[in-house]
Nucleic acid binder design. Structure first.
Length: 561
RNA sequence: UGCUCGGUGGUGAAAUUGGCAUCACGUCUGACUCUGGAUCAGAAGUCUCCAGGUUCGAGCCCUGGCCGGGCAGCCA
C-alpha cells in the first residue's frame, strides 16, 4: 500500500495559497483542517474534502488537523468518532498529534461569548423559536429587531450566566449576536450563538447545558488552532461574513481565510448524510458499510483501495461549479489500480459441467498459472486439471450468435492455462436443461506444450470439479436506477434499484481461495475484481464484486439487441 | 421582485492571468491478445449561456440580459 503523494494538479485554492505564500502571509505556513461532525459515517464526498485538506498540507509542507465539530450532542455519538478516524487513517492520512474536538474549546468559547456581551455585541433573547423565525423576516423582507435587543450589558451577562447554570428550560432563551436585522444576508440577522440543550454530550457529559452554534464555534476553533486556510463547501458561502465578523469583533490574533469549493455529487447514488442514514435506518441497505453505499466503509468492504479513491479525488479536481461526476470514473480508477496488483484466479459463478471424454479416467495434472501477467514478481501457482471440469453457463450455447467466441457444438476454445477442447455433444434433462457438455481435448495443445501456440478465438476460465471450493458471490450494481435520484419532485427512495444486490451461492472457485482472509482483492479471470468479505467462513467464503472488467462482448450484445 | 455564487465537448477539470480551446473519463474504429481483460494506434464530439462593447487579438476585461445553485434550524 502506498502513501499519498503531493498532488501535481493545481486548483483555484492552491493558486490562492501560492499567492499568500508569495506575500509571506501567515509566515509562510499552511495549516488546514478536516472538520467532520460525528453524526454519521464518512462518504466519498468527504474523501474529496479529506484529500483536499490533507493533500494541501502535504503539498505545501504544512499540517492538517482532524477536528470533530461536536457542538450538537443530540446527534453525535462516539461510534461515529471512531469510524471517522478509522476511515481517514485507512485513506492513508495522518493527523499526527493534531486531533481536536470543538468541545475542547467550550470554556474558551464561553469566554469569547461573554467578551462579546461586554462589548455590547451580543444579547440574551427570550423570543421563542417561532417568534425568532417571524422576526427574522423573509428572503425579500428585512427582519425586525427583537424587543430584548436593548438589554443592558449587566442584564445580558447575568442572564447568560444563568443559562449556563441551567436555570432555564430548553428553548427558553438564546444568546444572539447583535448585527443587523435588515441585512440582505439572512445569516447576519442577529444569528443565534448559544442555545440551551440539556443533553448528554459524548465527551463533556453533563458539564454543559448550553452549546455554541456552528457559526460561532467554527471560526473560533479555526483561529484557536492557527488554521491558515479553512476550506469548506459552497453552502457556507453566505456564512463567511459571519465567520469574519466574529473574528473581527473579538480581534483574534489569528484570522483564517475561509475558501469554499463545490461538493462532490456522483450519479446513481445519493450523498447526503441524512439520506444515507435513512437508507440504513429503514434497512434499504445492510448498514453503513453495505458495499452498495458510497460511504468510505462501504467502498472499503466492496473492495475499493485507498489508492483508487485518492486517485479519483485527484482527477475530479476542485472548483466552484456544481457538478455530478460519472461513477464510471470511480470505477475506472479502481480497475486501473487493481489491474496492477490483484492476483488472477479462476472462479465459476454459474457452473455447468464439462466432461472431456478422451481424457484418461482418474488422471490429474498440475498446471502452472501466472498470478498476475502485469507483475512478473507476482509468481505462479499450481492448478489441478482433470477429466471433469466446470465452466460458466454463459460460455456455452447451442446456437451461437455472430462473433460468439465461446464454446458451442463442434467449436474449439482454450481452457486458460490448460488445453484446447472441442464440444462434441450436449446432454440434457427432460426439461431441455443442459446437464453436461461432452468435449474432446487436444493433448498437444497444453499451455507450454508442442502446439501451445495454436490459435483459437476464445479462452475460458474453469475449475476442476474434483479440485475446487464452494463460495458465495455477491454481485452489486447501482443503488439507484436513475442517474440523479434527487432531481424532480419524486422521493429519491422510489428509484432504489431492487436488483442492486444479487447473491450467488454454489459458485465454484479454485482451491487456493478456500479459507481466504477477508479484505483481499482478486481478479476473477474474465469477470471482474472481487474482494473477500468479512462474512466469509472456512466453509463458506464470500466475495463481493467490486467492479466488473470492461466487457466488450456485453457491448456487442447490447448493440445487437 | 433581498443577498450571494456559478455557467467551457455527454461528464469532470484546465487554458502560462488578454495570444492557436487542452487533458481525463465515457463513446466509436482498428491492431494485438492463452482474460472479448490489459496494452497500443486512431476518430468523433466543445468554437466557451446570449447580445453588445474595449482591443491587433476576448473563454478571460466592461455593460446588459438569460439560465442554474445556495441562504428564512435554537442543524452543520
Amino acid at each position: 500500500m502506498s502513501n499519498p503523494k503531493p498532488s501535481t494538479v493545481s486548483n483555484f485554492i492552491h493558486d490562492r495559497i501560492e499567492s499568500d505564500l508569495n506575500e509571506n502571509k501567515n509566515d509562510g505556513q499552511v495549516v488546514t483542517r478536516f472538520p467532520p461532525e460525528p453524526n454519521g459515517y464518512l462518504h466519498i464526498g468527504h474523501a474529496k474534502s479529506i484529500c483536499l485538506n490533507f493533500g494541501t498540507a502535504l503539498k505545501y509542507d504544512g499540517k492538517c488537523h482532524l477536528r470533530f465539530d461536536d457542538t450538537n450532542p443530540s446527534k453525535e455519538e462516539t461510534e461515529y468518532v471512531e469510524s471517522i478516524m478509522e476511515d481517514v487513517r485507512w485513506l492513508g492520512f495522518d493527523w499526527g498529534d493534531d486531533l481536536f474536538y470543538a468541545s475542547n474549546y467550550f470554556d474558551k468559547l464561553y469566554e469569547y461569548a461573554e467578551d462579546l456581551i461586554k462589548q455590547g455585541k451580543a444579547y440574551v433573547c427570550d423570543l421563542s423559536g417561532d417568534e425568532i423565525r417571524e422576526y427574522r423576516g423573509t428572503l425579500k423582507e428585512p427582519g425586525k429587531e427583537s424587543p430584548y435587543r436593548a438589554r443592558s450589558i449587566e442584564e445580558n451577562l447575568d442572564l447568560f450566566r444563568r443559562m449556563k447554570a441551567g436555570e432555564f428550560a430548553n428553548g427558553e432563551r438564546v444568546l444572539r449576536a447583535k448585527i443587523d436585522m435588515k441585512s440582505g444576508n439572512i445569516i447576519m440577522r442577529d444569528p443565534v450563538m448559544y442555545r440551551i440543550q440539556k443533553a448528554e454530550h459524548h465527551r463533556t457529559g453533563s458539564k454543559w447545558c448550553i452549546y455554541p452554534m456552528y457559526d460561532f464555534t467554527h471560526c473560533l476553533s479555526d483561529s484557536i488552532e492557527g488554521i491558515t486556510h479553512s476550506l469548506c463547501t459552497l453552502e457556507f458561502e453566505n456564512n463567511r461574513p459571519l465567520y469574519d465578523w466574529f473574528l473581527d469583533e473579538l480581534q483574534t490574533e489569528c484570522h483564517p481565510q475561509q475558501i469554499e469549493f463545490a461538493r462532490l455529487n456522483l450519479n446513481y447514488t445519493v450523498m447526503s448524510k441524512r439520506k444515507l442514514l435513512e437508507l440504513v435506518k429503514n434497512n434499504h441497505v445492510n448498514g453503513w458499510d453495505d458495499p452498495r453505499m458510497p460511504t468510505i466503509s462501504g467502498l472499503r468492504r466492496r473492495g475499493y483501495t485507498p489508492e483508487s479513491i485518492r486517485d479519483f479525488c485527484e482527477r475530479i479536481g476542485v472548483a466552484k461549479a456544481d457538478n455530478t461526476v460519472d461513477i464510471a470514473l470511480l470505477e475506472h480508477c479502481l480497475r486501473e489500480d487493481l489491474n496492477k496488483i490483484a492476483y488472477r484466479v479462476m472462479a465459476v459463478l454459474k457452473p455447468v459441467k464439462v466432461i472431456i471424454d478422451n481424457y484418461p479416467d482418474g488422471k490429474t495434472e498440475d498446471l502452472t498459472a501466472e498470478n498476475n501477467p502485469e507483475d512478473e514478481t507476482a509468481g505462479t501457482r499450481t492448478l489441478k486439471f482433470s477429466k471433469e471440469i466446470l465452466i460458466e453457463q454463459e460460455d456455452f450455447t447451442e446456437d451461437p450468435p455472430k462473433k460468439y467466441f465461446r464454446l458451442s457444438p463442434g467449436n474449439e476454445v482454450r481452457l486458460k492455462h490448460a488445453y484446447i477442447i472441442k464440444c462434441e455433444s450436449v446432454e440434457k434433462d427432460d426439461n431441455d436443461n443442459i446437464i453436461q457438455i461432452h468435449c474432446s481435448y487436444d493433448e498437444t495443445s497444453k499451455s507450454g506444450g508442442a502446439t501451445a501456440d495454436r490459435k483459437v478465438k476464445g479462452t475460458l476460465h474453469w475449475v476442476s470439479a474434483a479440485h475446487c471450493a464452494e463460495a458465495e458471490v455477491r454481485l452489486y450494481s447501482h443503488l439507484f436506477t436513475k442517474e440523479n435520484p434527487e432531481s424532480g419532485d419524486e422521493d429519491y427512495k422510489n428509484f432504489l434499484n431492487r436488483e442492486s444486490l444479487e447473491i450467488l451461492t454454489g459458485c465454484k472457485v479454485e482451491q487456493s481461495l478456500a479459507g481466504v482472509k477477508p479484505g483481499l482483492n482478486f481478479q476473477f479471470l474474465r469477470q471482474g475484481y472481487f474482494c473477500s468479505d468479512p462474512d466469509s467462513t472456512n466453509e463458506n467464503p464470500v466475495f463481493n464484486r467490486a467492479v466488473s472488467l470492461r466487457d466488450t462482448w456485453a457491448k456487442i450484445q447490447k448493440k445487437g439487441s
